[in-house]
Structure formats: structure tokens, C-alpha cells
């Protein structure tokens, strides 16, 4: 087959023949009569433009940052790119005092989001699903933090936590010398303080996702379960929750993504000072701005990419396996 194509198109001989090429050449033969030239151009554009954009904005940038992770570059002129091999990673793993705390904080971020606001969001969704009075008002109130930009959330909470004039310290009288509670600066406190803000927002997000899932639950299931004499908790545990499986998958993925991309809230809150270092903030600090340690920052970005892949690939595999078996 391959040799066959080679002989028939000698001008392509210089380029090694690609796998799908022979297929391409045969398929259009059948379509030639169906598609006019214009159709083909239109189709070409419709498929080509998104492909080019996708390749340029996703693949080229991702691959470029992977390549840059093995170099040292100050961002000035392409001539100053210097190959340094694994140096960036070695420095990152051994010398950077902020790297391991950042990894740890990203993990804590995920664990907290999945353990506290997610079940709480589910709880709220179940309550609101019961068509209680003012259900809409509650829904809006709980969902509002999700609508607000995270940067604004960070700004608002930073005012609440301000050591001198903040709401909390003013209420509990912790803004006098000797009694300070430094919610934003104390490395033992600030991560938890900012996680409260993140949870505040995440709860609303989870609530909406679960509410949508609950609306999709067949009411006859509830009826059947109550006819069987199950109480509310038993119905939820044995009937409703298992039917929410697809929603749970979405929730899990969304929460993982939230944990990995956590950035804006913390950046506004305290710029990722000690106690709240995050991978995303380390990347920004190294690449953006005057510092321009682009190679080094890319190395951190690669670490983040590997972590994301480690989470996403098993998910994709299980999804595809399910699809295939279905």
C-alpha cells in the first residue's frame, strides 16, 4: 500500500508518507460528486481555521513551554535562549524553598474543596430541591459568589481579614498591639483564611451542579422508594445519590481543575506570600514582570502540566472505557 502511493505520487517521495494519507486519497473519490468545490473550500475553512487556532493556541504554546523548560531565557531576543538540560528542574526540586510548599498547598486546596464545600453544596441542593419557600432567593444568594469574579472575591475577603480595620479583627478586638491575629500574613493561618473564601464560592458552584443533577432524577424513583417505606435519608443514600453518578464525575473534575488553577483569589489576597504559595503563582512570579526567568517559570508550568495529566488521563481512560462498553 505504502509503496503503491509512493510510486504514484513521486513529488511526495521526499517526505516520508504519512499513515492516514492513503485513506485521504481514497475517501474523497466517493465524495467528489457529492461535494462541489465551494463545499470543499467551506469545509476546509470550517475544519482548518479551528484546527490552526487549536494547534497554535494549545499545542504550539504547550510544546513551546515544555521546550523552554529546558532552557534559560530572559525573554529578550531569541538569541539569548540557552540550553540548560535538566538544571531548571534540579534547582526547582532541591533549591527552591517555595516549590514543595506550593505543591502541598495545591493538594490541600483540592482536599479541602472536596471535603467541605462539595458535600455542603450537595446538602443545600437537596434542601432547595424540596421546593421550599423562597427557594429562588436562596439559590440566588448561594450562587452569587460564583458570578462574582474571583479577583473581586479576593479583594472583598482581604478587607474582611485586614489586621487593622478588617471586620473580623474589629469584632473580636484582635487589632490591638499584642493581640494581633494576622489572617493574611501568618503562614499558619492564611491558607485556611483564603480557603474559607474559596469554599464560600465553591459551595454555590457545587450547589448549582447538584441542583441540575437532582432535577434530572426521575420522580417515580422517589415515589417507589417511599412506597417501600424508606425514610428520607435512606431514599437519598440508596436511591438518589447513586443516580447522581454522572454529576459526581463532573463535580470531581471541576474541583480538581479549581484546585490546580487556583490563582486569582490568592494573588489578590496576598500575592502568594509565605503560607499561601501555589504553583500557578510561582509561574507568574517567575515569568511575568521584570524578572523574566522564562525557562525556570516554564519548568514549574511543566510540573503543573504533569500533575494535571496525571489526574486527567485516568479520568479520560475510564470515560472512554465506559463509552466503549456501552
Amino acid at each position: 500500500m505504502t509503496t503503491d502511493t509512493n510510486m504514484k505520487s513521486p513529488e511526495a517521495a521526499a517526505v516520508p508518507p504519512s499513515g492516514p494519507a492513503p485513506v485521504n486519497k481514497r475517501v474523497p473519490r466517493g465524495h467528489k460528486r457529492l461535494l462541489t468545490r465551494r463545499d470543499r473550500i467551506t469545509l476546509g475553512f470550517m475544519a482548518g481555521v479551528p484546527t490552526i487556532l487549536h494547534v497554535a493556541l494549545v499545542w504550539v504554546t504547550a510544546l513551546a513551554s515544555i521546550a523552554l523548560a529546558f532552557t534559560s531565557w530572559d525573554g529578550i531576543g531569541f538569541g539569548s535562549i540557552k540550553w540548560v538540560g535538566l538544571d531548571n528542574f534540579r534547582q526547582l526540586f532541591t533549591d527552591n524553598p517555595q516549590f514543595w510548599p506550593a505543591v502541598e498547598h495545591n493538594v490541600i486546596w483540592f482536599v479541602v474543596l472536596i471535603l467541605i464545600p462539595t458535600p455542603f453544596g450537595l446538602f443545600l441542593a437537596v434542601q432547595l430541591d424540596k421546593n421550599i419557600r423562597f427557594s429562588r432567593v436562596y439559590q440566588t444568594a448561594f450562587f452569587l459568589p460564583v458570578v462574582v469574579s474571583l479577583a473581586v472575591t479576593g479583594f472583598v475577603w482581604q478587607l474582611v481579614y485586614n489586621p487593622d480595620t478588617g471586620l473580623i479583627n474589629s469584632l473580636i478586638g484582635a487589632n490591638k498591639p499584642g493581640h494581633y491575629i494576622d489572617w493574611i500574613g501568618d503562614p499558619h493561618l492564611n491558607l485556611w483564611a483564603v480557603l474559607i473564601a474559596a469554599s464560600w464560592r465553591h459551595t454555590g458552584y457545587m450547589m448549582i451542579l447538584y441542583l441540575a443533577g437532582l432535577k434530572g432524577v426521575d420522580p417515580s424513583l422517589r415515589e417507589a422508594s417511599s412506597l417501600d417505606g424508606a425514610n428520607e435519608w435512606q431514599t437519598f443514600k440508596n436511591v438518589i445519590f447513586p443516580t447522581l453518578r454522572p454529576t459526581n464525575t463532573v463535580v470531581l473534575v471541576v474541583t480538581i481543575i479549581e484546585a490546580l488553577r487556583a490563582f486569582d483569589l490568592v494573588f489578590v489576597f496576598n500575592k502568594g506570600a509565605q503560607g499561601t504559595e501555589l504553583l500557578s503563582i510561582l509561574i507568574t512570579n517567575n515569568i511575568i514582570g521584570e524578572s523574566s526567568r522564562i525557562g525556570y517559570g516554564s519548568a514549574i508550568a511543566v510540573v503543573l502540566l504533569v500533575i494535571s495529566l496525571a489526574v486527567i488521563i485516568p479520568y479520560l481512560i475510564s470515560t472512554f472505557r465506559k463509552e466503549r462498553s456501552a
Binding site: I41, G44, G48, I52, A56
Partner: peptide
Amino acid sequence: MRDLSSSLPSPSRRGLLKGVGGAALLGA
């Protein structure tokens, strides 16, 4: 076969590479 392949709308490998190169320039 040859004239058919030249009228194909599907991008040849070389063309694709050119496109990628262009996209890379665009990105840069």
C-alpha cells in the same frame, strides 16, 4: 490519481507543516 490528489482540499503533510510553522510564527 496525481491530478486528483492535487485538487484535494485536505491539506498535504507538507502544507500542514507549513500551517503549523505559520501558526508558530503567529504565536511568537
